[in-house]
Design a protein around this nucleic acid. Structure first.
Length: 442
RNA sequence: GGAGAGGUGGCAGAGCGGUCGAAUGCGGCGCCUUGCUAAGGCGUUGUACGGGGCAUAACCUCGUACCGAGGGUUCGAAUCCCUCCCUCUCCGCCA
């Protein structure tokens, strides 16, 4: 979330962001905020004044209680002290009701304010283009060569079923539509991709590997900005009140929650594999053939915690880390800078990587590389202490897919298919498959 | 799932109704002693919110809150009571 003070000082900027991101709703009436803040401060001031008074009285009582104990032999003085005590107690008690009323007020005001802030999205970075839909995204550049075929390339679901490496029918039989089996070399290729991605990010790019829990609490979801907006997209285990993660970003963002890191330990760079679970409610129909949109998929996610000064440089570096994989695999892809309307709720800036799939003649989104600035860190209360010893600051958080598997698999199968229906395995993956160079029908 | 023990400042660890935001040790920071190393002496040491100083900075100062979380008892709670969460030990179950 945003800093209240920032919102109050920049109401127009925030209003613009609500509009750009089409995030305005009944919770986001910013006009109320200055008044709420004023009422809040007033309640705090009054309550604290009364509490100071009460604390003083209690101390006085303590002193007299001590004296009273030593006066057992002097009944007259004892009586006088006890009378004083009774009087002070009465005064102190009288304060309690007023204090409680003020605190109740304050709690109510803060709850209303926080509800509002929870629905306010992050402000787009100055370098993000304006726009009203994904049609206004800017294609920064296109890399690699478009694959050429002297035959009609087959779609991934056709290749997959002919080669016996993808089984959507049995996936649907045991779990319903949107679930699938990978089989044989298909399953092995998936595993090879995961292992290779992790190895590149660890050894080449310097990320530390994490293997996170796949189920998390509601509080954790709130920290990465999935709540309250995307609640209905998540699988929920009611008996344990746990949610299946939609991305490893969620547990890894929560990893350092409520901590104060040292600046010298920044940037922290983590890479995590996880299965990702999405209900995809309301998405039935479009792009559902095969495994383009499924309920469970594998993904390798990069995450960084940085200082505000270096976050945009780290953002570019992270983009390069994801691109490197696509280059090594020899894929045709493009880098897209999202316009403000297409930018996620919590993000300030985001690049998408889209890879070309020849059969459908479509660009498939395989990565999203975002800078959240301090938006997630504020929710998750994750700060760092500056090297000069100043007050703790919120870190900047970034994350990016590196990469999302099913769509990568679709592109790889389709781009590397041969006339005889087999699929060539790209060189970087062969060592993870016992040197195998090709997936052919059994 | 059952039984027991416990959750205190960066860490370790006292306190178990009244000047306790919290002893002590370690660590960190500053100054001093010291030929290097080792060691020693003195001082300092959290976070958030609000007021004032002030430029809505740094910083200083005052107040309030924070001893796992949330409630309760009391004039007053780290200390007593309740609920929840987590950790550890033993038993059971299990990949």
């Amino acid at each position: 979330m945003l800093d209240v003070k920032f919102v109050l000082a920049n109401l127009e900027v925030v209003r613009k962001a609500l509009e750009d991101k089409k995030a305005a709703n009944e919770h986001t009436d910013l006009a109320k905020l200055p008044l709420l803040e004023e009422q809040r401060k007033k309640a705090i001031q009054e309550a604290e004044k009364l509490k100071a008074e009460k604390n003083k009285l209690s101390k006085e009582i303590g002193v007299r209680m001590g004296r009273s104990k030593s006066l057992a032999r002097e009944p007259e003085k004892l009586l006088a002290v006890n009378a004083e005590i009774a009087d002070l107690q009465k005064q102190s008690k009288a304060l309690n009701d007023r204090i409680q009323a003020l605190e109740t007020d304050q709690g109510r005001i803060e709850a209303e304010r926080d509800e509002m802030l929870a629905w306010v999205p992050n402000i787009p970075h100055a370098s993000t283009p304006p726009g009203t839909s994904s049609a206004d995204n800017v294609i920064m550049r296109t890399e690699g060569r478009k694959p050429q075929f002297d035959f009609a390339p087959k779609a991934h679901f056709e290749l997959g079923s002919k080669l016996g490496i993808l089984d959507t029918d049995r996936g649907a039989k045991i779990s319903g539509s949107g679930w699938y089996f990978l089989r044989g070399d298909g399953a092995r290729l998936e595993r090879a991709l995961i292992a290779w991605f992790l190895d590149v990010h660890r050894a080449r790019n310097g990320y530390e590997e994490l293997l996170p829990p796949f189920f998390v609490t509601e509080k954790t979801l709130y920290g990465s900005g999935q709540f309250p907006k995307f609640q209905e997209q998540m699988y929920y285990a009611e008996m344990d009140k746990l949610y299946a993660i939609p991305t490893a970003e969620v547990p890894v963002t929560g990893y350092h929650r409520d901590e104060i890191l040292d600046e010298k330990d920044l940037p922290k760079k983590y890479v995590a594999y996880s299965a990702c679970f999405r209900r995809e409610a309301g998405a039935a129909g479009a792009d559902t053939r095969g495994i383009l949109r499924v309920h469970q998929f594998n993904k390798v996610e990069m995450l960084k915690l940085t200082t505000p000064q270096s976050s945009y440089a780290e953002h570019e570096a992270m983009l390069e880390n994801a691109e490197h994989l696509l280059k090594e695999l020899g894929l045709h892809y493009r880098v897209v800078l999202l316009c403000r309307a297409d930018l996620g709720f919590s993000a300030a800036k985001c690049y998408d990587l889209e890879v070309y799939a020849p059969a459908a003649d479509k660009w498939l989104e395989v990565s999203s590389v975002s800078n959240f600035e301090d938006y997630q860190a504020r929710r998750t209360n994750l700060r760092y202490r500056p090297a000069d010893g100043g007050k703790p600051q919120f870190v900047h958080t970034l994350n990016g897919s590196g990469l999302a598997l099913p769509r990568m698999v679709v592109a790889l199968w389709e781009c590397n298919q041969q006339k005889d229906g087999s699929i060539l395995i790209p060189p970087p993956l062969r060592k993870y498959m016992d040197g195998q160079e090709r997936i052919a029908a059994k």
